[in-house]
């Protein structure tokens, strides 16, 4: 059954959408959009590392994304001008990653596959990695859900309740790195952050609790993934960008609807 490349692509996309949805909600609530950018852009550097050391791409990306996420999280805690700094890290990581990949000796790397994903080339092995990673990421968030929410609201309040906000931040960081690593094949380094943020933002107007927002975001993410896949097949457009385009259209519709209902 998994011999159909479209089915494999659909399953891969759904796996990423499920992992990205709850995580994306936290990215939105904590205003960490650049955090997502910096981490996912750093994935390219991970690709270069993996290829040069002859490691699996997934492992290289996981390590570098984790390192980047920890750096950003640490800097975020201090009172440096984070907005600009995160911008520097996000774009710097991308540029250095591009340079690093081009410097690889004796490698003909299909750069666009890493920048925009190649979901149609997902293998059974990839599927296992994607669903494994997605399961880890979702399990982490479900396990720490209440604590993560508390730390997101106010670190001091969380501390007074006996939690350690730094540890919760680390959990998010870990989940983000895992999700970036599994999403690279599906949407590519440039658009991972989009799959995090757009479904969550689309779900916001129709949600009255954090849980419903996460679940709605998952549904929207799946619709975007499958819709993008179908559109890409029908119109012969690149798949990753098609999925993000569908998500963006849904966001516009949701925002418009919300504005109408508020009136």
């Amino acid at each position: 059954m998994l011999d159909d490349f479209l089915l494999r692509a659909a399953l891969a996309g759904v796996g990423v959408a499920l992992a990205a949805a709850p995580l994306g909600c936290f990215v939105v609530w904590r205003r960490m959009a650049y955090f997502g950018d910096a981490t996912s852009h750093a994935a390219l550097l991970g690709v270069a590392l993996a290829l040069s050391l002859d490691l699996p791409v997934f492992a290289g990306v996981l390590v570098v994304a984790l390192a980047m996420a920890v750096i950003v999280a640490t800097l975020n805690g201090r009172n440096v001008s984070t907005d600009a700094l995160l911008g520097v890290l996000a774009h710097g990581a991308l540029a250095i990653g591009l340079v690093a990949v081009s410097l690889l000796p004796n490698q003909r790397v299909d750069l666009s596959a890493y920048l925009f994903g190649e979901i149609l080339a997902v293998t059974k092995g990839d599927l296992a990695v994607i669903w494994g990673g997605a399961t880890v990421s979702i399990a982490l968030l479900v396990w720490r859900w209440q604590a993560l929410l508390s730390a997101t609201l106010n670190p001091d309040l969380a501390t007074a309740s006996g939690l350690n906000p730094k540890r919760e931040q680390l959990i998010l960081t870990l989940a983000l790195a895992v999700t970036v690593a599994v999403a690279l094949k599906v949407v590519g380094a440039l658009l991972i952050a989009a799959m995090l943020i757009i479904p969550a933002a689309t779900a916001r107007p129709f949600s009255r609790s954090p849980e419903t927002m996460a679940i709605t975001a998952a549904v929207i993410g799946m619709i975007s993934t499958l819709g993008g896949l179908a559109a890409s097949f029908a119109f012969d457009t690149p798949t990753g960008p098609s999925m993000v385009s569908v998500a963006a259209v849904l966001f516009a519709a949701s925002t418009g609807l919300a504005a109408v209902f508020r009136r």
Partner: peptide
């Protein structure tokens, strides 16, 4: 961007 009822808030953590 965080939808949260008063009841939900009091149930954290």
């Amino acid at each position: 961007t965080l939808p949260l009822t008063v009841h939900g808030f009091l149930n954290l953590p």
